[in-house]
Amino acid sequence: MRQWLKVTVVGGLIALAAFGVFVWASPPKSQIVEYKSGDDTVRAYLVLPDSPGPHPGIVVIHEFWGLNDWVKEQAQKLAAQGYVALAIDLYRGAVATDPGDASELMRSLPHDRSTRDLEAAYDYLAARPEVDKNRIGSIGWCMGGGYSLQLAMHEPKLTACVVNYGSMPTDPADIAKIQAPILGNFGADDKGITPVAVHNFETAMKAAGKSVDLKIYDGAGHAFENPNNTAGYRPEAAADAWDRIVAFFAKTLKP
């Protein structure tokens, strides 16, 4: 009897542990979805939280590399926080691993088509039954950070916008169009998006009465949040930036 009990308890514990590991390890549900952007049919990587909705939604916008595994992982991390995350694919299937190729893809990208893609992604999320259409945000890194701000300019109903080392609008008329609160993370050593540009954007946003929270990380350059950027990855700054992102979305998108 005692032996039997022991087997049951141990067995039960093992089963429980295995289930726990399974739940802990099981990634949020992801799928490739299709929708229209102008006349084109585009694809995106959608990740849903485990619980039933409605949830806030987040448009996730890739770096100049394209929709690679790292960006998909960010979408999964956001879904694990309770958001429906839609990682869009501005390059229509192309992904670069070499900086030269990435640069070529970036400079071949028609900006007007990208703007259409962003609005289409917003509309797609807003129409999904699991999404609360009044609580949709956006996040982007590098090139995608610039586009995250473009979405804020073009979609007044966007509720939160995160830019990580992306280019910022300078035209007061464009800044006036931004309604979403903005969170930004930048590297002090970024040659393209300089601290001066960040300060100018902050000043212009504040002068226009907009909500803006920008942080510049010393000792960090462009793309410091991405571990694949082996020379430029700054784990501590990256962890801090992620905490800021989680807190910002919780404040702006959660009920």
Binding site: G100, S103, M106, G166, P169, T170, D171, K191, I193
Partner: peptide, 19 residues
């Protein structure tokens, strides 16, 4: 170098360049 070229082009604000 190429890397700096990428950084500079990524950092260029569209609206300013058009202006």
């Amino acid at each position: 170098n190429d890397e700096e070229a990428h950084e500079l082009s990524r950092g260029l604000p569209d609206d300013r360049a058009l202006r």
